[in-house]
Design a protein around this nucleic acid. Sequence first.
DNA 1: CTAGGGTTATAA
DNA 2: TTATAACCCTAG
Length: 84
Amino acid sequence: MASLTGAHTTSPANVQLRRKKVPWTAKEEELLKMGVRKFTSVNDRNIPWKKILEFGSSVFLMGRTTIDLKDKWRNMCKGSPRAK
DNA sequence: CTAGGGTTATAA
DNA sequence: TTATAACCCTAG
């Protein structure tokens, strides 16, 4: 008994607050670009992230949300033009 | 549901 | 310390 091996499934101390910092995969960026390029229209000012997420829900990582897509796209587009 | 802002963590 | 990438919360 006394099997105090701890370690359940995620690192020594369980990280309850804030998810793990998982870097986006190349497939994610590709699918995101493809979805936006294939969905967004000249009539649709906004971006149907919801549709895009469902479009590649099989490839997207687990725990990804529409907020994350918008965030990545914005953070990328902001630091894309003109390398600082 | 989509858009914007603020904060945290990691790398250079 | 600064910059980059990612995550969470709030507002329209």
